[in-house]
Design a binder for these strands. Structure first.
Lengths: 94, 94
DNA sequence: TAAACTAGTTTATATTATAAACCAAAATAT
DNA sequence: ATATTTTGGTTTATAATATAAACTAGTTTA
């Protein structure tokens, strides 16, 4: 009856990160931090988890002299997000 | 940007329970257990939490000689569920 | 050159979900 | 009759998770 919800996406902050990345080419750490209203620590942890699952790719570089972390959703992440949304519909429609 | 998701509803099993109760007059413990595919222990705990939040009402009686736990969603529960769904849409509709 | 700020990471803690262990009564098998 | 299993749960222990606090390395500002 109820399919399992991907636990990696069924988390407020990770879902917010993925939601943003689904509609953007890429996003910087500081941008995600601001938009999700999260602490840097929490964001860092959740980005790692999404990255380890292969849902996003993370690139570390420099913007001038400051470190710059850039995130992009991967095809696998897009698939996972879409599956999650479809599964969720079982729970919330009707 | 992203409103907080009610943590009481943002839980697979509790969401499944509420989802079922939203479309039924009432439901028995054993029915919920079967439909949600949960263990009795887990279900018992989550029913308590929903009940303590006032999202559902729980009535304990007997069916013949066997104990019977019956659950119903409350108006407050309906409101919370609808709010949750609306908030969730911010996350999943691009 | 000390203080404060930026852009993070690591680690500790508090919360949560979950199943295992338990209980009382009833039904079933011996 | 009386063990034994099943039903319908509850309580408790454990494992997983989310989150913030503490920390780091370098940079800018006073």
């Amino acid at each position: 009856m109820f399919k399992d919800l991907d636990p990696l996406l069924h988390s407020q902050l990770r879902l917010a990160i993925m939601s943003l990345l689904m509609s953007l080419e890429s996003a910087e750490f500081t941008f995600l931090k601001e938009k999700t209203n999260s602490t840097a620590g929490n964001l860092s942890v959740q980005i790692d988890k999404l990255s380890e699952a292969g849902y996003i790719s993370v690139e570390k570089s420099f913007k001038g002299k400051k470190p710059l972390t850039t995130c992009k959703v991967t095809p696998r992440g897009i698939k996972a997000f879409e599956d999650y949304v479809n599964t969720l519909k079982q729970y919330i429609n009707k």
